[in-house]
Simulated assay, not measured.
Amino acid sequence: MMFELLIVLVVLGGIVGVLAGLLGIGGGLIIVPSLLYLLPFFDIPTEIAMHMALATSLACVVFTSSSSAFNHIRATNFDTCVIKSLLPGVIIGGFAGSFVAEWVPTEYLPKIFGTIVLSLALQMFFSVKSGRNRTMPSRFITLGAGGIIGTISSLAGIGGGSLMVPFLSRHSVEMRKAIGSSSICGAVLALSGMLGFILHGTNSDTLPPYSVGFVYLPAFFAIASCSVLTTRWGVKLASTLPAPVLKKFFACLLLLIAARTLIS
């Protein structure tokens, strides 16, 4: 049974890697719900399953987004000014999200996140049709946006691509550069959030074996070992597909995630 579970996680990692390279997401939107279903089979106590899923997802996103970012940098799919403006807020927000997770009722988080993702998906659909975009806001506003994105993403166990890419696309950043910049920021965001969850996990008395804080190492290694190998396939697709196609595909993925989150 344990071997079969690890095989499932390896396959999951392969899917996550392709999506990370293609869409600039770290894969947490897929990893978190998958781990919430699978962790009880590893005898993870239900009272810490959510925290273990979030922390393990962020640990996977660190490596997946880093691999995706490396390939996007090679393809010059990034914007240095955007990264410099977003990154400080993203780091602060990512670390803060792990602290907020300690006192926010977990049953509220999926509904809040689902609503935000739904609004972003609808906005992206409208931007594809109208072609109207805004210029990037001031550095101070972008810093604040990065902090909000970082906090929400850490709370949801994701790298922030599902929030950063629509934000950048809305503000006239070319889609491929938005995806690449999101991958770079997402790797740092996930690292910040993961460290916060590890710090909090050291105070838990119910941690299972083979865990570092709330990060469950068997699941982490199974997912990350495959995801870092498949990101380059997604990057190749992102470099060849037209920007409107990427927008529509990303918006459809967001709609599916939002619907699943709000309904469940």
Results as ranks from 00 to 15, higher is better:
residue 123 Q to H: 08
residue 57 S to T: 09
residue 106 T to P: 06
residue 248 K to Y: 12
residue 114 G to D: 08
residue 208 P to V: 05
residue 224 A to K: 00
residue 77 N to L: 06
residue 18 V to A: 00
residue 198 I to T: 11
residue 144 G to S: 05
residue 243 A to D: 13
residue 231 T to Y: 00
residue 232 R to D: 10
residue 8 V to M: 08
residue 62 V to C: 12
residue 142 T to A: 11
residue 78 F to P: 01
residue 138 S to G: 11
residue 182 S to K: 02
residue 128 V to K: 14
residue 161 G to L: 01
residue 178 A to P: 03
residue 161 G to Q: 00
residue 235 V to N: 00
residue 154 S to M: 04
residue 233 W to P: 01
residue 225 S to Q: 14
residue 85 S to G: 08
residue 15 I to S: 01
residue 32 V to A: 11
residue 1 M to K: 10
residue 200 H to T: 09
residue 35 L to W: 08
residue 51 H to K: 15
residue 33 P to H: 08
residue 263 I to Y: 11
residue 193 G to P: 06
residue 121 A to L: 09
residue 184 I to K: 03
residue 28 G to N: 01
residue 66 S to W: 13
residue 175 M to I: 14
residue 44 I to D: 01
residue 150 G to L: 10
residue 47 E to F: 09
residue 160 G to W: 01
residue 166 P to D: 03
residue 50 M to K: 12
residue 5 L to S: 14
residue 251 A to T: 06
residue 203 N to L: 11
residue 153 S to L: 03
residue 219 A to H: 02
residue 207 L to Y: 05
residue 72 H to P: 02
residue 86 L to G: 13
residue 4 E to Y: 13
residue 7 I to S: 11
residue 46 T to I: 04
residue 233 W to T: 07
residue 15 I to E: 00
residue 151 T to W: 05
residue 152 I to V: 15
residue 102 E to L: 12
residue 134 R to H: 13
residue 35 L to V: 07
residue 66 S to C: 12
residue 88 P to S: 13
residue 253 L to H: 12
residue 109 L to G: 10
residue 145 A to Q: 09
residue 247 K to D: 03
residue 22 L to W: 02
residue 73 I to M: 15
residue 156 A to K: 01
residue 202 T to I: 07
residue 170 R to H: 13
residue 20 A to F: 08
residue 254 L to A: 15
residue 197 F to R: 02
residue 245 V to N: 10
residue 180 G to T: 10
residue 107 E to P: 10
residue 207 L to Q: 04
residue 225 S to P: 07
residue 115 T to G: 15
residue 38 L to M: 11
residue 196 G to P: 06
residue 201 G to H: 02
residue 178 A to V: 14
residue 232 R to G: 02
residue 215 V to S: 03
residue 219 A to D: 06
residue 169 S to Y: 07
residue 219 A to E: 05
residue 124 M to E: 09
residue 178 A to K: 03
residue 127 S to T: 14
residue 262 L to Q: 05
residue 241 L to F: 11
residue 127 S to Q: 12
residue 163 L to M: 13
residue 81 C to K: 15
residue 25 I to T: 03
residue 173 V to S: 04
residue 104 V to D: 09
residue 160 G to F: 01
residue 120 L to H: 08
residue 24 G to C: 07
residue 178 A to I: 11
residue 35 L to E: 04
residue 258 A to P: 06
residue 216 Y to C: 05
residue 40 P to Y: 11
residue 34 S to P: 02
residue 185 C to G: 05
residue 137 P to I: 05
residue 60 C to E: 00
residue 42 F to V: 03
residue 227 S to I: 00
residue 30 I to Q: 00
residue 245 V to T: 15
residue 189 L to C: 10
residue 201 G to S: 08
residue 220 F to Q: 01
residue 9 L to N: 00
residue 33 P to F: 05
residue 170 R to S: 10
residue 183 S to K: 04
residue 229 L to N: 13
residue 214 F to H: 09
residue 29 L to V: 14
residue 179 I to G: 00
residue 80 T to M: 04
residue 43 D to P: 02
residue 51 H to R: 14
residue 58 L to Y: 03
residue 17 G to D: 00
residue 197 F to Y: 15
residue 59 A to P: 02
residue 186 G to K: 01
residue 136 M to G: 08
residue 95 F to I: 06
residue 220 F to L: 07
residue 114 G to W: 09
residue 116 I to C: 08
residue 55 A to H: 04
residue 190 A to V: 12
residue 53 A to V: 09
residue 144 G to D: 04
residue 221 F to Y: 14
residue 77 N to S: 15
residue 197 F to W: 12
residue 225 S to N: 14
residue 153 S to E: 03
residue 59 A to H: 04
residue 55 A to T: 06
residue 44 I to H: 01
